[in-house]
Design a protein around this nucleic acid. Structure first.
Lengths: 214, 214, 214, 214
DNA sequence: AATGAATGAGGCTTCATTCAT
DNA sequence: GATGAATGAAGCCTCATTCAT
């Protein structure tokens, strides 16, 4: 979980603990006010430390943003494969991945939106770190699609387009939560989205297999 | 075209002209550096005016952002219905709306991404102005879907979910352009996306009608 | 009534008229908000002219202040001698001068306070113009005192101190109006002040003469 | 000593020290150039600190003015009662109060004039703070007069008018110092003013008592 | 004479970052 | 390791003044 963020403090346990405090506070503040309107002092105050301390665990303000965004994309990168673990059936794996994706997004709604708002506020090197990790996650989806396709369960389609269509469905839950909030719940959103997407991509064989899974 | 942004200058023609200059400059800068990293002076310089002049046409920096975002959502709100004008067939209307949406997004790629990044930087009243306009546009999609559904061309589905799935497909072209750029062109993206979505939502009758349209 | 303020406009009648508009508007605004918080645009708007016009009748903003202050000190310089005109009795002259002073101050309460606030905002040359005029006015008081003194109606006292004590009584009505407003009216203020001052300065002969005057 | 001015710095000793530096510098500058022509940077420079530091001890520029004016009215409120301490004779108390008032004014000549110029530049809440304190001070004079009156040493007169006549005599030393400077010294001014005022208000009994005091 | 658009100097204020304790 | 006072770069915005029409 190397973060590529430097600290003058040596003790890794302490680093872990302090950064968690800082990131938790920052996530909340960035999500509600945005990166630029949030000051280091606000973060420190909410984290219950002095603002000078922040600079013992981070070199610049932007590093805090990096840590926050890493936490989100790391959550994705961990929980999605975990949902697929031990599941052999290719279609089942894909479905579970999609469901998991929506649920992680739901759990991290605010920071997910933050990622859309603020990734570009990072310097290119840091930005790449985040995007690489996101791509990594999406590769699980891409791979699951590919396996289904090879098994004849999904039609021949542009895999990239399909991958991002699915990703956007998941992210959409966070991005448009201001719209959905009063209209539909998470589980219904997942069910409806799956319904649409799978109907659009499954082959007849795929459809039969999917019916069996339920 | 009322912008809800005040100006001390009276002449509407001049206001129009100056604001166009300012918005054009600001769009470019906001898109590449973000709202907060862009200064009023930079905008003025790129627009070829003094920075004092900006404040004759705008009351605060945030108004510039509002104008920029209004330009995008207005483009959506105008061009999408225009693509449907004179087209009677319900399915054709929907397809054209989707295609048009993707193309407007393509034409305004940078400011579309900007909208995702920066809408939350607006004060609530201004933010609402933008979101209202976006909802307005999306209502065309919702309506087109509903008509198709009533005509038995589209399955019974949650219309809100479907609307935003389509909207996200269109926006996705801008949001993930960093990924798609090297992989696929706009027209292929539209074709593939339509392929997936329509397959997912059309009834057998709808599929037959769609085949006829091509 | 040369004002020592330049104008690019030639016609003296027009200058007079326009300056009156400007000064009237400015007096009100300066009095309520102070010189620095008042903008040329506000003055122009209240005067019903364009703000560009102001600069045809005045070279700088400070000139407007000078004109405003000149109007007050000129009112003093005119009305106080006028109250003494045709009055021969030395003590009567002094008493009428004091009464007149208080009444002019009352009529110009706001600009009188303004003079205390803002005379120092003038450049030295302009400031001197105002102070010279004020001294001119006060000389009427000084002179009246001196004549009374020579006539044995007033005790031998430092004339300068006495003059300013009287002047401050008059100005005090404006300066401390926030305090007096709810406590006493103008005529009572004049009567009480005269009572105190005259009792303090009149000789027995003076007191007898004063009794005759009433 | 509560100033009603916020500071982000906690240590009261440091606040005291820094504010003293700032106020000393500001007093000088405000007195010579006025509030609006003085910049925070000038104050900081003269105080030997960075301009950023000023904002650790003050929230807005106007707070600096408030602190400066508080220093003057506080000096009045402290030194005048101190001059009366331990003095039992009513007339003696009044005379000492008047003398003390003139001397404090002399010691704070510039900021006293500043108070006349700039109190209105304060927002109403801050202005009230200053005026309340000034009224507090003047109440000592009012009270001393009242006691003398009850003891039959001073004639029945409007106490408010008399109070402010005395106050203006004291303030006059500062307000008209440009005139007096070359004409009379402080002690003579005090003596002459007392002479006039007391002659104006004392009863025969009062005059006898006053003669005894000398 | 009058208008009002345009300029740009300059002030206030914020806040990331440093550093002495 | 932690604190918090101090610094100073930098941005927003105002408004006196100019000038083309």
């Amino acid at each position: 979980m190397s973060t590529r963020v430097d600290s003058v403090v040596e003790d890794p346990g302490l680093i872990e603990k302090r950064r968690n405090q800082i990131v938790a506070a920052a996530t909340e503040l960035f999500a509600s006010q945005g990166f630029y309107k949030t000051t280091i002092s606000e973060i420190a105050k909410k984290a219950g430390v002095s603002h000078g301390l922040v600079y013992l665990y981070v070199r610049e303000k932007e590093d805090v943003l990096l840590l926050v965004l890493q936490q989100v994309v790391n959550a994705y990168a961990e929980e999605i494969p975990k949902a697929m673990e031990g599941v052999a059936d290719p279609l089942d794996r894909l479905v579970r991945a999609i469901e998991a994706y929506c649920r992680v997004v739901d759990k991290h709604r605010a920071p997910t939106v933050l990622a859309y708002r603020s990734t570009k506020s990072l310097t290119p090197d840091r930005r790449e770190l985040i995007q690489r990790r996101e791509t990594e996650t999406n590769n699980f989806i891409t791979e699951a699609i590919r396996v289904c396709m090879e098994a004849g369960l999904i039609r021949k389609l542009n895999v990239d387009v399909l991958t991002y269509q699915i990703v956007l469905v998941a992210h959409g839950w966070a991005l448009k939560s201001w719209y959905f909030k009063s209209r539909i719940g998470l589980e219904d959103y997942i069910a409806d989205s799956l319904d649409i997407v799978l109907a659009g991509i499954l082959t007849p064989a795929g459809k039969r297999r999917y019916a069996d899974l339920r």
